[in-house]
């Protein structure tokens, strides 16, 4: 809600007088100016938004895929350690030359947030030449648990 200055109201009055020309009467001008001023002062309609911070709590599922090589589990857990994230569960499978690694990480207790974790692990994945996915557990909970 903003108040118009007397100069702005003067300008509106001038414009109204010019527009009305010979048909201008003090009453008409007063009415138009009052309408325009009240409309402008009301401004754009207001609406209250109350955004919530997108989750930095709960568990995150880290999945890594790629050609097997020494040090993958070490590099990924090292990154998690350095960011002070708590590992809750680890599972790994190797089929022929390809491995799949799934780690469940608790992010509620760490000072670090989800974005830091995702950025760091994506970098680690690139360095190792493997693909790393980082997803909040809620998506799995909602898709597979009724």
């Amino acid at each position: 809600m903003k108040k118009l200055t007397p100069q702005e109201i003067e300008k509106i009055t001038q414009a109204a007088m010019k527009e009305l020309g010979p048909s201008a009467t003090p009453e008409k001008i007063h009415q138009i100016v009052a309408d325009v001023v009240s409309e402008l002062e009301r401004g754009a309609p207001s609406i209250t938004l109350s955004p919530e911070k997108i989750s930095s709590e709960g568990k995150v599922i880290v999945t890594a895929f790629g050609k097997n090589q020494p040090g993958i589990l070490f590099q990924i857990t090292k990154a998690l350690f350095e960011l002070n994230f708590d590992i809750q569960d680890v599972s790994q499978k190797i089929v022929q030359d390809f491995f799949t690694l799934i780690i469940i990480v608790d992010i509620s207790k760490s000072a670090g947030d989800f974005n830091q974790l995702k950025t760091r692990l994506t970098q680690t994945g690139e360095q190792l030449g493997i693909r790393v996915f980082v997803q909040h557990e809620d998506i799995f909970k909602s898709m597979y648990r009724v």
Binding site: I61, D89, S91, T100, I102, I104, E137, M143, Y144
Partner: peptide
Amino acid sequence: MSYNFDEI
């Protein structure tokens, strides 16, 4: 593990 390997 609370999630099945195959689900992930």
